[in-house]
Nucleic acid binder design. Sequence first.
RNA 1: GGGCUCGUGGUCUAGUGGUUAUGACGCUUCCCUUACAAGGAAGAGACCGGUGGUUCGAAUCCGCCCGAGCCCA
Length: 874
Amino acid sequence: MPSGEYDPDTVEAKWQDRWVDEETYAYEGDAENPDTAFSIDSPPPTVSGSLHWGHVYGFTLQDFVARFNRMRGKDVYFPFGYDDNGIASERLAEDELDVRHQDYERREFQRMTQEVCAEYEAAFTEKMQSLGISIDWNQTYQTISPEVRRISQLSFIDLYEQGREYRQRAPAIWCPECETAISQVETEDDEQPSHFHDIAFEVVGEADADDPEQFTISTTRPELLPACVAVFVHPDDDGNQDLVGETARVPLFDQEVPILADERVDMETGSGIVMCCTFGDQTDIEWYQAHDLDLRIAIDESGTLTDVAGEYEGLSSADAREAIVEDLDEAGALLDRWGITHTVNVHERCGTGVEFLVKDQWYVELLDKREEYLQAGREMDWYPEKMYTRYKNWIEGLQWDWAISRQRSSGIPFPVWYCADCDEPVLADKETLPVDPLSDDPPVDACPECGHTAFVPEDDVLDTWATSSLTPLINAGWDWDAAHEEFRFEHPELYQFDLRPQGHDIISFWLFHTVVKCYEHTGEVPFDSVMINGMVLDENREKMSKSKGNIVAPDEVVSKYPVDAARYWAAGSAVGDDLPYSEKGLRAGEKLLRKLWNASKLVESLTEDAPAEFDHDDLAALDRWLLASLDREIERLTARFESREFSKARDGLRGFFWHTFCDDYLEIAKQRVRDGGDPSAAYTLSVAHRRFLKLFSPILAHATEELWHDMYGDDSVHQSGWPEPLGIDADFEAGETAMEAVGALRKYKSDAKLSMNADLDRVEVWGDVSGFEDDISSVMHVDELVILDERPPIETVVTGVDLDYSLVGPEFGSQVSEIEAVIDDDAYERVGDELHVAGVELDSEMFEIQEEQQYTGAGEMVDAEDVVVIVHRD
RNA sequence: GGGCUCGUGGUCUAGUGGUUAUGACGCUUCCCUUACAAGGAAGAGACCGGUGGUUCGAAUCCGCCCGAGCCCA
């Protein structure tokens, strides 16, 4: 029985424990029909740190959907994954243990990483449970686990066999700190201080050898001089056009390179003449390919200069830069040097400036199927719909296939060996997966191409996204069925997944890659619907970041406010819009919890003798009205949950509960029960209250559970079923009119500075409140309530005319302003139903006469829309 | 620099061509009415980021500008 004040600290922790212990949210799994299963595929959070607001917000929104569908009778599959096979987790282990992955054997380092991750994963589990997310904790997976490794390697083999993957020697973005190739999406821009150097190049020619022609190139990277393979001039650069076709000699290194014209030169920067090095940046790669240039690799995997750099070999690129600048200066080739700040492409994980290296890399082919992938995106329902545009723009802007090779210790190995002689790739047998080529043998004794018997294992691992993009397959138990020689699902009823929830920041890579891979493996789009949430911003609508120092930790907030209040806050904006963190939002949630708790206490005290059954035909008018109004609210609310309009769902239900139920109905019902044990009112209170708990339960998961157990039984409210409308008819108009009359009397008392329970001697009502007379007089303490048969003596004064512009506008167009002016001057004429004004005739649909009523009889009249209330006091 | 999105009382939010712009939080005044004063009643407060246009009529549609967010260069 609810008593005293609501104590969220105790209550919430209690239910979080019991939900887990009693497996309240376990997937039954006996659903044969995919329509009765509701499956959710959340992107597993990266195990690299602690929980942030993005997690809280995203998972809470998913939880609304999960709980709503569970209530609607769906068997909800809500699993949880830990993404611990990526570079992020590897770096976490390096930081925690203060080690470098290069210093350990791969399996040893993986073991260390998994140990570190285990602690973080346990913390994650606890946090998710303390947020009350209705995850089925029997259904968890780690992306580094053997099961997932198997699926990931199966995926690689399947795509290879389908001809969707290829291996190519190509320039790759390389992080010299992490010593791995990374994809474009793993880089970010960073503003860094640097220097511009003006360096003199000589033109090689027949001119006077003592006084050769010179020109200047500007560069921030003089250490790349040994990698210089060409010099470019813009075709519109008239001043330097004479150089095109000549040959230049690179200072210090003396290689001779062609001078070429290309419009990709930025004429505004430096001298307008630029050197091309293999490779300094993206443009160098394009020039290398377009002009068939030499390849001079001056920087290796670790950022150290190679033998191409001659005497500078072995220096780090930073040391080499200083040495080369010094030597240039000495040789008189350094013309100028000045500090600048410029944007550098860095690896997002470590902040190190990236290099470009030519490496053998595996790619997943994407560019040839753009149209199909666009179509796949269109087949999903997008919440909100506008987010599809981002998916579309991303695909239309794709320029590269997907590089999936990574040179790291941690991660899932490619199940591939190469013939030591002819380089033919040999893939593992599907039955033997997962394998690690470094320690396992290839499935053949001799190369099927050339018969050679020695093999080289692939020591790269797969890009973390190559695995993260398989979560629908992981969740549905995708595997190779050797007996039937086909891929099968352990849980086919889960696929396609009903809901894919995620932030809008990862549409372009995570969602896109998931759609692509699952589509290629199954021929089906993996998701029925995607729900895209916005970002959590700080209270000033700005991004939370360490450098701004505006981060609010979820832990602190949840220890200060009820989790249900945070859930209330999370429902506070349209899905897809960014949501500012707001303590006010949390306090509003707390207030609602308190209101719900207190109202429940009252209902409890009033319904002790409530009949379990009551013939709906015998219900009092007010009770019929309340239950019928609740029916309408249920229909609205259901539609809003279905369309993921959580903010409207929350505000609509809150308003109805607070105002209609508590302020209007409960105030009256409590008197009826107290005065005479009214069974109709007690029954209605009990029915309505049960329904409110169910309706609030997806959002206020803990408080409703506590109240449900206190008052109604041992089952979980979350398994109790969503209420269907009762189908009760009521006189809505009379009910609304009666409430208006009550409102008018409240206003009267407030204006007269009377307390709400002050007695009123006599009140006259003109309006249809039939069936509600006693309700009005009891709640407003009216001694004598009289329903007037005749309109009270009211003098009606016409104060103006309201036009229905949706009719008048299209009909009269530009005459409207004239009509308005004439009406303002009262120069119109009422002829029957019509209004004659400014030479035109408006029919009765088009206007409404605005009137004010002045009461001329005894007593005081109170203003109201559809009812006239007259108060008599002695 | 490009694409997409958002910009509504002090704060958050509803509202995608039609009268006087929704609600919440906060604020002011009154009321201790035995569920709740962390409550109730009443009230003040926004010409809808700026600007130009389309229209009889624009928060709503279009152009430009400003601020914020995400992605990309």
